Simulated scan of single mutants.
Amino acid sequence: MRIALAQHRAAVNDPDANLKRGLDICREAAAEGTDLLVFPEMWSTGYGTPPRVPDARAAWEACAMGPDSQWLEAFRRSAREHDMAVVVTYLQGGANGLGNAATLIDRQGRDLLTYTKVHTCDFTWEEALTPGGTFDVVRLDTGADHVDVGIMLCFDREFPEASRALALGGAELVVTPNACLLCDDRIGQFRARAFENMAAHAMANYPAPRMNGRSCVFDGMAFRDGRPRDHCLAEADHQPGMVLIDLDLRMLRHYRSTQVWGPNARHPGAYRRLTERS
């Protein structure tokens, strides 16, 4: 399957401009034969900081959208028109308050999964958001094949439990919309998440100057023919652009069935501290 990562700039706190820009990106990705397009974190606002002035803050909060929003419906139409799945990200509104959300729309324009960020950055303005509570996995039909997909958002990837929970749910591919400066250690974390779970991991980040790009894909297949291999399929520079990679699902499934890492080698009884609240 072909995955496209939209390492593009977004307008700060302007959902209308980002809708137009996002639909242009969808057309660009579709022209490249993309099966799954992934946007960076909170594309609707460009991950813009909420204003402090009360009236402006209220206007920002009013940009939050639920599943019936015309903004999301436009991406559904685009996915259907281009026969391409899309992971689009936005400020989420609803009965539980504001959230940081990503929706996986399939190539028929249907919502397969809406994920709300679990590990909100409570040391920033994200403390005002309501965190999600689950890491779910869904089966995505690519036309030629299918792939079991889960979603993390930015800070989630710094917790190995997030990727492992998705792996336990059967994820073959973990997509990660991101909005931060990606240093070598964070890229190393992401590589490790793919390696230890034998699952492909794809991350879309914003380019410079607000972030620093480095959108990347690791296929998780760290060995071939008994020898180590570099399982980085792509790592972008800091410039705007589209990152395109082809993921070999047949090879990934063979690797997962024959190698020793991942959920099957666990000893859950020894990990009780991982779920203690103290």
Results as ranks from 00 to 15, higher is better:
L72G: 09
I187M: 10
R80V: 01
N18H: 03
R193C: 12
V174T: 12
H267L: 12
P228D: 11
R210S: 12
R191N: 09
T89K: 02
L5C: 04
I3K: 00
K20P: 03
M251N: 10
D111R: 12
A179N: 11
R76K: 14
A222K: 10
R227E: 15
G188E: 11
F123M: 05
G169C: 04
H146F: 13
P240N: 09
A10K: 03
A74T: 01
C232K: 14
R77I: 06
G150P: 05
L113I: 09
E126Q: 13
A64T: 02
A29Y: 09
G213M: 07
N18W: 00
D68T: 00
P268I: 07
H201R: 11
V88W: 04
L274I: 10
R21C: 08
D237C: 05
D145R: 08
R186E: 10
M221Q: 15
N13C: 11
W43K: 00
H119V: 08
F135Y: 15
D24A: 15
C121M: 12
T120N: 14
G241H: 05
L129E: 06
E28T: 06
A179H: 15
V53W: 03
A85H: 00
D35R: 03
P67W: 06
G169S: 02
A199H: 08
M198R: 14
F223L: 13
G33W: 07
D83R: 14
P263T: 10
R110C: 10
G99C: 05
V118S: 03
A30H: 03
A56S: 13
P268D: 08
R266M: 14
Q70D: 14
I25L: 15
N205R: 09
V174R: 02
F223N: 08
D35M: 03
A29V: 08
R250P: 03
V137Q: 04
D156C: 11
D145A: 13
V87D: 06
A11C: 07
D55I: 13
W43Y: 02
D219Y: 03
E158R: 12
G213R: 05
F190G: 04
D136E: 15
A162P: 04
A10E: 05
F218S: 09
A101C: 11
A11P: 01
L244E: 06
R193G: 13
V149W: 02
G22C: 02
N13E: 08
C154T: 08
P50D: 11
M65I: 15
R250N: 09
H146K: 04
L168A: 15
G226Y: 11
P177Q: 03
M152H: 06
H238T: 12
L72P: 01
A17M: 09
M152V: 09
F135S: 04
R224S: 14
A200Y: 10
L244W: 03
P240Q: 08
V149Y: 01
E172I: 01
A236V: 02
M221V: 11
A179E: 06
N197T: 15
H119M: 14
R107M: 09
A30N: 07
M42F: 07
A29S: 14
E32H: 10
G94Q: 02
W43T: 02
A64S: 14
V147G: 00
A95W: 05
I25N: 00
M65Y: 00
A30K: 01
T130K: 06
V175I: 05
S163A: 15
R2E: 11
D156A: 08
